[in-house]
């Protein structure tokens, strides 16, 4: 099933956890984090989110308008759960001035580029600087090179991505929303890096 046809028939939606009640208080065992995805339009942000939240991939692009909100809870091995509240932004120029609306207060920012596009990598670096300037100081930053399944069209080497990430204290991973490669790993690794509230 494609992600567009994934029109929320109630069940899929509940599973996605989007509507799960907010009763789960954020405590040491049950974290709630606001995560924002940034990056050029078309790099695959929405596909990454839909792969993570619904386990789906639809090759036909549904251009995001404004920003979409989705959430997903994962359980870690130490039996803590992390509920990600995800802002999937549009990345279009007309919404540029509104980006802070979405990344303000975010605990995690995932900056995505497309490994087959140098331009998108340049844009990602722009976003990183932007976040370093205006994001919360203890924000967890991840750099994601998506569309890793398109090796033959690769324009950005793993090395370049990794180096840039290390220089900027970011977590780096290459993913494919299409094949689901490294998608769950991305979010699990982020979860591990979250600052934990002190356990009582």
């Amino acid at each position: 099933m494609g992600c567009s046809s994934s029109l929320p028939d109630g069940s899929a939606r509940r599973l996605s956890g989007m509507d799960q009640d907010s009763a789960v208080a954020p405590d040491a065992k049950n974290l709630r984090v606001k995560l924002v995805l940034l990056g050029d339009s078309g790099v695959g942000k929405s596909c990454i989110v839909l792969r993570f939240v619904r386990g789906q991939f639809d090759p036909t692009s549904k251009v995001t308008v404004g920003a979409s909100f989705l959430s997903q809870t994962i359980a870690l091995q130490d039996s803590t759960t992390v509920k990600f509240e995800i802002w999937d932004t549009a990345g279009q120029e007309r919404y540029a001035a509104l980006a802070p609306l979405y990344y303000r207060g975010a605990a995690v920012a995932v900056v995505v580029y497309d490994i087959t596009s140098v331009d998108s990598f340049t844009k990602a670096q722009y976003w990183v600087k932007e976040l370093q300037k205006h994001g919360s100081p203890d924000i967890v930053l991840a750099l994601v090179g998506n569309k890793a399944d398109l090796q033959e069209n690769r324009e950005v080497s793993v090395q370049d991505g990794l180096e840039y990430a290390e220089k900027n204290g970011m977590f780096f991973i290459e993913t494919s929303a299409k094949t689901a490669d490294n998608i769950n790993q991305l979010f699990e690794e982020i979860a591990k890096r979250l600052p934990r509230p002190l356990t009582s």
């Binding site: 050029d40 339009s41 078309g42 279009q92 120029e93 509104l98 497309d114 300037k133 205006h134």
Partner: peptide, 19 residues
Amino acid sequence: NGAASSASDINEIVEDDEI
């Protein structure tokens, strides 16, 4: 909106044959 910034919209692909 002091922090105005963003990415521009290159590589926008509209493949809508199935919509």
